[in-house]
Structure formats: C-alpha cells, structure tokens
Design a protein around this nucleic acid. Structure first.
Lengths: 159, 159
DNA sequence: CCGCGAATGTTATATAGCACTACAATCTGA
DNA sequence: TCAGATTGTAGTGCTATATAACATTCGCGG
C-alpha cells in the first residue's frame, strides 16, 4: 500500500487567451467554448485535490464504488464509459493504495464486488467536501439563476 | 510525408448514463456537467473529421498556424495551453504529413516560424467547413436564444 | 445433467497525449 | 563581454485509453 501524498502528474493546462494571436474562428465553435470552460473546471478540481495523488477518472471511480458497494468492474467501466480493462487497472491502483478492495460476491464466481476500505471512505469524504467547495467557488462566477440555466442547457447538450 | 487517410485512434468515449447506478452526488457538480457536455461535443468533432487522421489538438494547432503565419513553437504551445515540447511534437507530425513547415525567421537564429503548406491550407479549409457544420448541428440541440445565453455563460466560466 | 455460448476478469500489447528535465544554441541587455 | 533569458530539442516517464486473446465461471436449452 503506497503512500498517497504528492500529486505528481501534469498540471491541468488551462488555455489562457493569448493576446495578439488570431484564433481563426475557433471562438465561434460551441465545442471550443465548452472545452475552455471545462478546462477551467479541471483547474478547480486540481486545486481541490492538491497534495493528493488523485485524478478525475480515479475520483469518479471512487465515488462510484462508494455509492454502489459491490459494483463489478464491468459495471464500473460502463459507468465511466471506458473498457473493462481500464476499470481493472483503476481497481489495481485502488488496491495498491488501500482505498478499495475486491471481495467475492455471493452467487457469482466470476465477478468481484468492489468496496471502499475504511481508508478509502475517509479519503473520499474529505475529497468530496473539498471538490464540492471548489466546484461551488468555480460555479460562483455565475449568478444563481445563470447557474441553473447553464446546467439545464448542458444537460440538453449531453443528451 | 505520410498519408493522412484513416483515423486510427479510439472513439471519443461519451459517458452514457447507466440506469440503476448511484452517481453519488457527481451530478450536482458543474464540472461534471461540463465534462459530459464536452464529450458530446467531441463526438461532433469526431464525426466531422471522420476518415482523416486528425485530433482536436492537431486541428486547433493547424488553425492557429494558419491564422498566424510565422508563429513560433513556443507561442503555439502557449496558445494551446501546453508545454513547448508538445508543440514540437505536433510540429514534427505536421511536417511528416506535409501540412506545415518550419522556416527560419529573419532576426532570430533560435526560433522557427511555422507556416502551412499548400496541402495544409487545403486540408484546413475542407476540415473547417465540416467542423463548423457539425458544430452547428451539435449546437442545434438548443434554440438560438439558448445558444447565445450558453456561450455567454461559458465565456464567464472560462474567464 | 451436459454442453455451449455469454459474461467476467485478466494479461499483454499498443497508442496518444502530455509533462518535466536537461541541454545546446542563440539572443539581449547591463 | 558576459550573465541570464529564450528557443528548440531529445530523452524519459506516466496516465489513460483501446484491443485482442484467454481461462474461469455462469446459465440455459435440450
């Protein structure tokens, strides 16, 4: 079980607008506007998880496991939108860091059930608090009414 | 100069909502809503560039080079929000595919200036048309007024 | 109850994308 | 003229994916 201290990975690259550069019509694309806003959101996440070696997919996966005890790796992959093999690598990482564990489920000798460890629960509780706070701060760039509207529109786009 | 035919990479994973799974409060996060919407936008881009081995960062970089002839790799990296080394890899790829080239700039023996080749200009013209069309189709999930509002709000978030 | 197809996890392999470090060449300004 | 900044580059490594092949196990139709 390795330590979970330093955040090593790359900083989340926000794309600051560079003055004097011609954006060649990119600004008119909804997709580009979404990307820029989302990178800003990643920064909020990054600040929230500073000092902990976690990443967005890892965080999402831990939340899923915490909220759905006994989840199988296949179902975790489906919820994340990734292949089974990716869910397995994530699970390996969680076990190596003592955050979650595989346990045999009653009926099925193939599937594992995933469960947070005590340590995982503590970490998720702490992180979720910080992530929510930073997300709220990020969302605070908008008025409350605007935020409601934005979420509605984003929901329409995501289908 | 390699061919530029098939798109090899992974499909852009949208995250379909999985029924029966508890999302553990993730839905309340603005960052998560942004991510989902942006992945849907990536799919539109993917459809627009089907059959061509291009990716969002490559496309963005080509647009930048086209709109800013003589751009240095450092400035390209800054505009993309990535490290210089990434801009160099992109540039290598462009040269290998005959889309852009490095040319010495007048005063400075260190920096290269980046320029689209004729082939790069043709490709970008064709792609930009398709990308705009698919972006418009994607944005068409919203009413015109909603779209204006959304872009305004996204702009606020991206700062 | 048997056997076959489906599901599950796993292993192995590959790729894109990106960061960081260290370095050589070049520029710039005191 | 020289010290420090800038630029491109090479090398290395890690995350996040995907795909294919495989063994185990399950479930069901006969």
């Amino acid at each position: 079980m390795k330590a979970l201290r330093k955040q090593r990975g790359p900083r989340p690259g926000s794309i600051a607008r560079v003055p004097g550069i011609d954006y060649g019509g990119l600004d008119d694309l909804l997709g580009y506007a979404l990307r820029r806003a989302q990178l800003a959101g990643f920064e909020a996440f990054h600040r929230a998880t500073a000092g902990v070696d976690i990443t967005p997919p890892r965080y999402t996966a831990l939340i899923f496991v915490g909220a759905n005890p006994g989840l199988s790796q296949t179902d975790l992959g489906a919820a994340l939108g990734t292949a089974r093999s990716g869910a397995m690598l994530l699970t390996n990482w969680f076990e190596a860091h003592g955050l979650a564990e595989r346990r045999r489920r009653n009926g099925d000798g193939r599937a594992w059930g995933l469960y947070l460890t005590a340590r995982g629960r503590v970490l998720i509780a702490k992180l979720a608090r910080r992530v929510r706070a930073h997300d709220a701060a990020f969302a605070g760039r908008l008025a409350a009414r605007e935020l409601v509207q934005l979420k509605k529109l984003l929901g329409k786009l995501a289908g």
